[in-house]
Design a protein around this nucleic acid. Sequence first.
DNA 1: ACGGGGAATTGATTTCGATCAATGCTTGGA
DNA 2: TCCAAGCATTGATCGAAATCAATTCCCCGT
Lengths: 229, 229
Amino acid sequence: MNKMLKMNHRDREILLSTPLMSGLNPTLARRVLESAAVFSGEAKDVLFREGAEAENFYVVLSGYIRLFRLSRDGKEADIGVYGPGETFGECAMFLGCKYAFNAQAAEPVTLARFDVAKIRQIMAEEPEFSMALLRVLAHHLQDARENVANDRLHTAPQRVANYLLDMLQHSGAGNSNSFRLPFQKSLLAGKLGLAPEALSRAFSMLKTSGVSIRGRMVQITDAEALRRI
Amino acid sequence: MNKMLKMNHRDREILLSTPLMSGLNPTLARRVLESAAVFSGEAKDVLFREGAEAENFYVVLSGYIRLFRLSRDGKEADIGVYGPGETFGECAMFLGCKYAFNAQAAEPVTLARFDVAKIRQIMAEEPEFSMALLRVLAHHLQDARENVANDRLHTAPQRVANYLLDMLQHSGAGNSNSFRLPFQKSLLAGKLGLAPEALSRAFSMLKTSGVSIRGRMVQITDAEALRRI
DNA sequence: ACGGGGAATTGATTTCGATCAATGCTTGGA
DNA sequence: TCCAAGCATTGATCGAAATCAATTCCCCGT
């Protein structure tokens, strides 16, 4: 952790196409970029812990980050998984200024780190950026609420089916019905609130409903059947 | 539903003390108030349904509102319960402009309804109001994420215990260790993601851990024991 | 291409809470 | 004050997923 990198052209391009920045006017975008630093981390590196002062928030450039709660008896519950282009850690800026969850790299990552004090200054002068943050927060809120609804209403196979249908729709696979899971199955299990064994069993069960899986490669042969789970 | 009321002095006072409005300068506050209309509804009235165009968001003046997801097979999962001073329905304004959940009055309510188009206009001219909305969204996001964590990490008695400790801390009961549950137990069960029977059983179990309950009156005789659940 | 470590799968058992059903209690209105 | 409707509690049963354990598979580095 904390291996500072020079922000290269590619990083810049990724950042400028993120939901946080893609709608900003060029002057503002440049200013926001100036408040960011790029760095990389290894799998398992902890970005921040629950209760720590929130001096930064982050945008993922590559790899995946998991946000999780650690319980008293050592169990972990994933709250979200964030990948390239996604923002995390920004919520604390508007609350008690301490992170409410832990953030860990699920695999090797490259991140842009934003300085909260600088961002506050920018927000005071650029309402456009506040709007962008509103959209990021709204999106995260929707995700969290969907999580609650899914956990409370759906069985494990249904959650997996929904995830696969979502991936099929958003993977840019076009008319192809195959895609690769973007991260390890154990991470997907955590994201869906399942034990890894339950995820595995769900995949097994879904074999009879139009899903073929080998390693991380998924092929959906009958999306209609999948929708009916 | 749709029984329009004249915004009285008390409504105004409540609105001005809500998280959404309490920090606004008087001119802005007045302007925001002008975009609101007050109305009342009966228990069970549906404020909006999932998928409907989000032309308004709301602040509760009295009573309670539940936000819920309705599944294909008719089951309901509560996403949140909002009471006096709390805002709901604002998230959709920043997403696809359709409500993602259903909102229903859990009991007779009085609400302030804000016109989204007018609010957008205000936001474009008053960054201070965007900041207020950011704080509301951040607070809701934190709540939703806590819900996810609680559902995934805690048993029913633990969830109830945590809720009671929270209430004890925030009820303004001072050094008194009694308070009244603000709404029906069936609503509390839904809020905590439990069946009513499970809530009842958890209360029964917690009797051995410093909780005495009669109707909606709760007395906590041993907060330490409760914390250890 | 091969091998090893870690992830994934499968089997068995347990746990927790949902569901269903019956009974008791509380609250609000007359 | 009384009564009825609706909410809450209690008992019984079942189902889904967690947990534990053993085995297999996949992916990455050499």
